[in-house]
Design a protein around this nucleic acid. Structure first.
Lengths: 367, 367
DNA sequence: CTATTTTAGTGTATCGTTACAGCATAATCC
DNA sequence: GGATTATGCTGTAACGATACACTAAAATAG
């Protein structure tokens, strides 16, 4: 007799049900798969009863091996410790659950190698759909898996010229940045700064473009000294964002002619920027306006509550899951780009510019 | 010929490798499973080469079906949109990854029925280990699955008398609360409030007890009017926490003899509490001290930076994964409770009490 | 009353991997 | 030199579920 081994067997299988209902496993399977018109009502009842009595749960593993279809989708984000991605993870998970999917979570820490190895592991795991929260300008490191047939939905990233066939879902970053920037213009600001980490991602590029759009539209001069975009391209985590925001703001405030308002690349940076301003005894928004981007849960909780650009995450999650489901039902979705409209949220961190121009930032002195 | 069907076949299997290396699938399997001492070096090289050339990745699904062991663990938390749980999810995932595990993420939204149905789905999925971030006092809704053999590690919850056999990993909540409270005492505070949502969870109970310990130790009277613990037991989400914190603080401040310091049940509540104080033109910490609990990433970013109790998440995640791995290697881990030492983090939201007692809270007036 | 269709199921091979028994061949022993 | 042991690999039957081809029996047709 050929091998058998010490696998603990405690689960009830389709065969147990079949035996209990005195039918063949095929019949049980037929019932399970909605082919129950081909079955007498009595039989169906018998099987149902057996399933119930034995507490039968079909093994998804076996199912997946046989059918090749998986009900788990991968979600790769930079880090769920970051409230923006945490928020996304929650809404994606909720949407997925509603459609019978499970979510396998991966934190890439924004490293392309981890993105790639994760996606490979997911593939080996039978996962055929991955939602990738990334902003990397290139998706080339993922080409091999995509060619093998992986359905990739890129989030927070607008499509790029040389992209492999993927679906992109993101907010219209350029429009969003234009909205906040114009808001500041309409409050009367004429010198508006921009604080960002390195512009190493598509979305950041777009936001910067939107900021410039707004200034151009208002016929304000574009002063490159007002755009602070420094820091390490790689190591930008979560708290680091605030650190960079603080640095950037400090740099802009030490300019001979500092800005009266600042657009931050996102809410975390905005928070850092505000604390830098406050260290110099500047009051936000009285002496200086600061706006963020994303509208994380914290934005309205902060002190002062942040003016920001809201990403409609729920809607976006719904789009993502639509794509996922279509890809499962029919052919792989055609490569496309969905840009969702952002929404300006005005709170207390922005206001009219101070009447009198501030002195050149000498700490402990204000207007 | 019996049925075959339209499953798309594109993956390279163990058989392809075997054929390419001119050996049997068994040999490839042997190599894969570390039984390669029983194999000539030449053969091993040939197989390795074939695997490499074909880009072979063993199917985890097939493996799991055959061996019954799963390398994915479930992580059920109230909501990753909450920064505390998001932070935990990240460190758990990192630890898991380091040991070859994947993490399936589930947001229970703190509903027992969802906890249960998730755990059932995970079981059907072949997941045999679940880390449950919960604080529900009872685990009785999970007894059936635990009896089937699920290894459950409960996080942020100290063990309770009637618990099913689970391992608990949590911070020593009581000690933590005692630490912050004593810190406030040592700053000179004599009337110290406590702001919490409903004390419906084990950890909250413990924190309240720790607060009382500290007061007793300092021979300060326990005034129940200083303990605010209201709100809906069910619907306490993420932002809601701040809302409750704000409400609670407002209530305490309207007392005839309001506290000079407040311990909040966690950092989110503390943030809400601070904003309530600021609405009444009270400055934190000058007029009023507020401390939190958890030390979420935001705590040091807030304005003012929060004095709080740090949960050493990395250490705790390591403990959790130790348990998980032991449960896989050997017998199921013995039920136990690990309470990790918390750490007081003093920042700027706490200070000495104001010299002169404040007036009975009439808005727009301060000391 | 035989021929055809429908109904209500069953049998079998298969998804990719694994553990063990089995079995040639080569090496070692007395 | 024949028996024994070690070495190196292969064959087989599962793990649990599924889809199709198939088939007895019942229903309908002519």
């Amino acid at each position: 007799m050929p091998g058998d081994d010490g696998v603990r067997r405690s689960t009830v299988t389709i065969n147990d049900v079949a035996r209990a209902a005195r039918v063949s496993p095929s019949t049980v399977s037929n019932l399970l798969n909605g082919r129950d018109e081909r079955m007498r009502a009595r039989t169906r009842r018998r099987v149902l009863k057996a399933m119930d009595e034995l507490g039968y749960q079909p093994s998804r593993v076996a199912r997946q091996l046989r059918t090749g279809v998986s009900h788990v989708i991968g979600l790769v984000v930079p880090s769920v410790a970051n409230p923006f991605w945490g928020g996304l993870a929650r809404v994606i998970e909720a949407e997925a659950l509603g459609h019978g999917y499970q979510v396998l979570l991966c934190n890439s820490e924004r490293r392309p190698d981890r993105e790639r190895s994760y996606v490979e592991v997911l593939w080996a795991d039978g996962v055929r759909t991955v939602v990738l929260g990334t902003s990397l300008p290139s998706l080339s490191h993922l080409v091999p898996v995509i060619e093998r047939g992986l359905c990739l939905v890129a989030f927070d990233r607008e499509s790029q010229p040389d992209d492999p066939p993927v679906v992109n879902v993101s907010v219209d970053n350029r429009l969003g940045a234009r909205l906040v920037s114009s808001h500041l213009v309409s409050l009367g600001h004429r010198r508006i700064g921009f604080v960002s980490g390195p512009i190493a991602t598509v979305s950041r590029r777009q936001r910067l473009a939107g900021y410039r759009d707004a200034l151009a539209e208002a016929r304000l001069p574009l002063d490159d000294k007002l755009v602070w975009a420094e820091g390490e391209p790689d190591g930008f985590g979560d708290v680091e964002g605030a650190e960079l925001g603080r640095e950037g703001m400090a740099a802009l405030l030490s300019l001979p002619d500092p800005p009266t308002a600042v657009v931050a690349i996102n809410d975390i940076y905005a928070i850092g920027a505000i604390s830098a301003a406050q260290e110099q005894e500047l009051s936000v928004p009285k002496d200086l306006s600061v706006a963020g981007f994303d509208d994380i849960a914290l934005a309205r909780l902060y002190n002062p509550p942040l003016t920001t650009v809201r990403q409609p995450l729920e809607d976006m999650a719904r789009f993502v899951m639509d794509v996922v489901r279509k890809a499962h039902d029919t052919a792989p979705a055609a490569p496309s780009s969905i840009a969702v409209a952002p929404q300006l949220v005005v709170r207390a961190s922005t206001g009219a510019p101070p009447r009198q121009r501030r002195q050149r930032a000498a700490p402990k002195r204000s207007a």
